[in-house]
Design a binder for these strands. Sequence first.
DNA 1: GACCTGACGCCCC
DNA 2: AGGGGCGCCAGGT
Length: 121
Amino acid sequence: MPSKKSSGDKDIHNDHYFQKVFDVTCLIPEGKVSTYGAIADFLALGSARMVGWALNQSHRQEHFIPAHRVVNRLGELSGRMHFATPTLMQERLEKEGVIVVNDKIDNINHYFWHPRELAEY
DNA sequence: GACCTGACGCCCC
DNA sequence: AGGGGCGCCAGGT
């Protein structure tokens, strides 16, 4: 019965939405960036905050998650303080050719990538 | 169990 | 154009 409060499908969903966020993040092409909102919209999470919350745990994953390619809708590096050093996120982006000025991506729509662009999905 | 705080985003001023 | 308010969902206190 769905009405039962026992841990069931919802918990399973919660356990897997982390992995879904990781999967989508790994699909962002090098040199491109996506946003919390776009990923949340694509996965129908209902809240962009959940994407940030998931990425906050991404460093615990065995496989490397290119979390530096996810920024907020303005192109700001809002997650930079959660990397090993405050400048690591910017360094990784610049290494991929993304121009960052004042902790913000210059002309984000030039680099923006939406998960919908994937034919597989 | 109420309350606060986030790697967000939209609306309003 | 920039700043504040509120909704959103999950976790921590």
